[in-house]
Amino acid sequence: MSPIPRHLLDVGDLGPDGVAEVLRVADSFVEVGHRANPKVPALRGRSVATLFFEDSTRTRVSFETAAKRLSADVLSFATGSSSLNKGESLRDTVETIEAMGIDAIVIRHPSSGAPAQVARWVQSCAVVNAGDGWHQHPTQALLDLYTVRQAFGGGDEGTERISGLRVVIVGDVRHSRVARSQVAAYAGLGASVTLVAPPTLLPPSLEGWPIAGVSHDLDRALRSADVVSLLRLQAERGSGQCVPSLREYTACFGLTARRAATMEPGTIILHPGPMVRGVEIASEVAELPSARITDQVTNGVAVRMAVLFLVLGQGTTEGSDHG
């Protein structure tokens, strides 16, 4: 039984076994990335469409690089270049793309739930959520787990080392799809998650969230953290009204050099990007060896290769020749 669902909409859909499988497959693709010709024929003849309804550079490029390294054909649609600006509905766009024989749709959309709706509309396409509204960004959480495992476990040791880690997620949880995916992903592997934010940047209800707690005191939370994961203040989603000023936000919730110096040795810093230096993270902190932000980007390609490979590889005979 494959632990990989047909669509990847929510990181919770994978379950611990599915997450472990993604990370295991990503290990072999990290190695591919180091080759002179970083390409394998695993998805030759398959086609992947990236459908981005929201500005994004890193996630779209990361997915497209991943698909190309697997030798898939890549079609890129973005608002501004597609018929979406001509009044065509999301449903018609998706049905049109599927009618072209595309095997997987990687979708980013500003509306929470849009990928779930797309998954209901398609017949045979796989749908991979590249971020929907405030809801989910599953591959971001997976690449975070990969990076954490690399830092604390090394190599391809499985996911046991993540269990028991103390993860502190700082910032605009309310508007963050990254946080929603991270909480599910970390907690699913047994890590202990603490959210740190002012009340106005927390979701209205945390009922049912698998977290250890909530804190409004970053200084205290940093003293017992193995992983500090920062979130961007999402001004475009209205977080500007949730804090009096960026200056006050930084004073209370920014990872300043002074705060970074109080962290235990071995604590790592993650940021999903794009960073706003000087707001949630000081420039010099982003350059510390404990900041694994560049690793996250590198690992992102391998993790997305694994996701595309597993989602598209089901039921095909090409499944075993990726190494």
């Binding site: 209205p204 209800s205 009922e207 969230w209």
Partner: peptide, 13 residues
């Protein structure tokens, strides 16, 4: 409705 479901679904409540 703003509540546990909207918080989980990431839908403004």
């Amino acid at each position: 409705h703003e509540g546990s479901w909207s918080s989980r679904l990431g839908v403004p409540g």
